[in-house]
Design a protein around this nucleic acid. Structure first.
Lengths: 97, 97
DNA sequence: TAGTTCTTGTCAAATATTGTCTAAATCTAA
DNA sequence: TTAGATTTAGACAATATTTGACAAGAACTA
C-alpha cells in the first residue's frame, strides 16, 4: 500500500471531504487532492497532521513516507538494490553503538 | 568505506593533487576538497567524471553515492530500518515485472 | 441544471543546492 | 624560519527544487 492510496482510503473510510482534511492540515483542497493522487509529497509536518486528522498510526505513516523518499532516490537505477542494502547495513551498524 | 574517504584515498594512491582532479572535473579545488571532507555531495555528473579521473569502477561509486542519499533520508529516524526495508521490497517486486 | 466536490495547470514564494571567489590554514622543502 | 605550494573554510551569488496558493475546468450528485 502506497502512501497516497492509504491517505485516500482512510479519508473515504472516515467519510471526510477534501476540504475537511484540508482545513485540519491548514492548506487547500487542491494540495490534498494532489497528495492523494501522488502528484505531491506531503511535508513532514503534513504527515504529522495527517496522522491525527485521519487517525492513522503515526509511525506507520512516517515509515511509508520515508520509504517513498528512499524509493525515489534509487528507482530506475540498476544498482538500486545494492545501494539500498549498503545504506541498510550502515544504519544497522550505527544502531549498535 | 564512505564515498568521501574512497575519493580521497584513491586520489592519494594515484598521487594526484586536488587541482589536478579539479581540472578533470571542471571545477575548482575548493569543491573537491569539500567533497573529500564530506561537506559537499558530488552531483551525478561529477560522480561519472570522478570515476574516470580516479579510475574507480563506476557502478561502485554510483552505489556508494546512492546509498548515501538513502542514508541521509532516514538517518536518525527510529523507523529508519523499517522504512528502508519497505523501499527494498518495493524495488524487488517491481524488478520482477 | 445548479451546487458541490474534486482535479489540473500555473506561477510566485520559499528552500535547498551548487559553483566560485577569497583568504586563511596547513604542509613541505630548502 | 621562511617561501612556495596545497588544502581548507567561509561567504555569497547563481541555480535548481520544492512548496503553497489561486483560478478555472471536470466530474459528480441531487
Amino acid at each position: 500500500m502506497i502512501l497516497s492510496e492509504l491517505l485516500k482510503s482512510k479519508r473515504e473510510t472516515k467519510n471526510l471531504l477534501l476540504r475537511e482534511v484540508a482545513s485540519m492540515i491548514d492548506t487547500d483542497t487542491a494540495l490534498i487532492s494532489k497528495i492523494e493522487k501522488g502528484d505531491r509529497k506531503p511535508t513532514r509536518e503534513q504527515i504529522d497532521k495527517l496522522a491525527i486528522a485521519l487517525d492513522i498510526e503515526h509511525s506507520k505513516l512516517l515509515k511509508l513516507w520515508l520509504s517513498e523518499k528512499v524509493y525515489e532516490d534509487v528507482k530506475g537505477e540498476d544498482v538500486a538494490i545494492d545501494a539500498i542494502k549498503i545504506a541498510l547495513k550502515r544504519i544497522k551498524t550505527e544502531e549498535k553503538n
